[in-house]
Computed example of a mutant assay.
Amino acid sequence: MLEQLQRLKAHLDALNKRLEKVENENASLQQNQANSEAQFRGQISQKDDSIKQKQLQIDQLNQQLSQAQSQFKQLNTDATALAERYGRLEKSCTDLKNRFQEILTERNELRAVKEKMLGDQKKSQLQIEELQAERERLIQKNDHAKVKVEAIIQRLATLGTEQDQHAQEIQQLAHPTEQHEEI
């Protein structure tokens, strides 16, 4: 009986160690999840800032473009200096085309970066969901282990009381004369 209790105690110790290990793993996973979320939020805010800066540059370039267009109109109205200014105007148009091409290129690059960021965001969201599902699974596993430990403790308590009753019955059978003398 003492051996059984010692075995049960060893099992309880092992279960407690397993429970502690699972809780530590759960805490580690939660910490990793929090770190990942913070890292992804930081990356997203950096990308958002980058997009805002690029948008400001686009706006500035659009303003420059509108200014160049107003200059273009002014050059058309100035008939007296048309011959002299025509070469400059052609050069300005070429520069504007180059700038516009650069803007288009930057816009396309920004679109590609945006699509990549959206893909990364979706991947991150999936990872977060997977980690949350894993966390839920570990919590359920932990709860299940707690229930098993409680059941074992209850069985041990029940075994202890049943063994006490059996010991009394054995004593009564071993010493029946003592009971008759008391009566």
Rank of each mutant, 00 (worst) to 15 (best):
R88M: 01
A79C: 02
K52R: 14
N108G: 02
K52A: 12
L56H: 06
L65S: 10
V22H: 08
L96V: 03
A10K: 15
K47V: 09
Q57C: 01
G87L: 06
L5P: 00
L8D: 13
A34E: 11
A81S: 12
T105R: 12
K97I: 15
R85D: 12
I51F: 15
Q31G: 01
Y86N: 04
V22S: 07
A34P: 00
K73R: 10
D49Q: 15
Q57H: 07
D59K: 12
E3H: 05
S28N: 08
R18N: 08
S70Y: 02
K47S: 11
A38E: 13
Q60E: 09
Q71C: 01
S45Y: 13
G42N: 14
Q39F: 15
A38V: 03
I58W: 05
Q46Y: 09
E25V: 02
I51K: 04
Q4P: 00
D78N: 14
A81Y: 04
A83F: 13
G87W: 01
Y86R: 05
G42I: 00
E109C: 00
Q33W: 09
E109V: 10
Q53C: 00
N26H: 13
D78G: 00
L2I: 05
Q69L: 12
L29V: 06
R18Q: 10
D48H: 09
S28G: 02
R7T: 03
N24L: 12
L96R: 01
L29C: 03
K17I: 03
E25I: 02
L5I: 04
Q33A: 10
K17E: 12
L12A: 05
T105L: 07
T105E: 07
Q4G: 01
Q6Y: 06
D78T: 02
Q101G: 01
Q57L: 13
E102T: 15
A10S: 11
K54M: 08
K52H: 08
Q43P: 00
Q43N: 10
S45P: 00
E109K: 12
L29W: 04
R41L: 13
Q31T: 12
N108H: 07
K97M: 09
N35A: 14
Q39Y: 14
S28R: 13
E25A: 06
I51R: 06
K47A: 14
K73I: 04
C93E: 09
A10D: 11
D78L: 03
E109H: 06
E23M: 11
F100C: 03
L61V: 03
T77C: 01
L104M: 09
N76K: 14
Q63M: 04
K21A: 13
N98A: 12
Q4Y: 08
K21Q: 10
Q31C: 01
E90D: 02
R18S: 10
A10Q: 14
S50L: 06
R111S: 09
Q74S: 13
E3W: 02
N16R: 12
K9Q: 13
D49S: 15
L15K: 09
N98Y: 01
Q57R: 11
G87V: 10
R88Y: 07
G42P: 00
Q71H: 06
D78Y: 01
N26P: 00
K54T: 06
S36L: 15
Q74K: 08
G42Y: 08
Q55S: 10
R41N: 08
I103G: 01
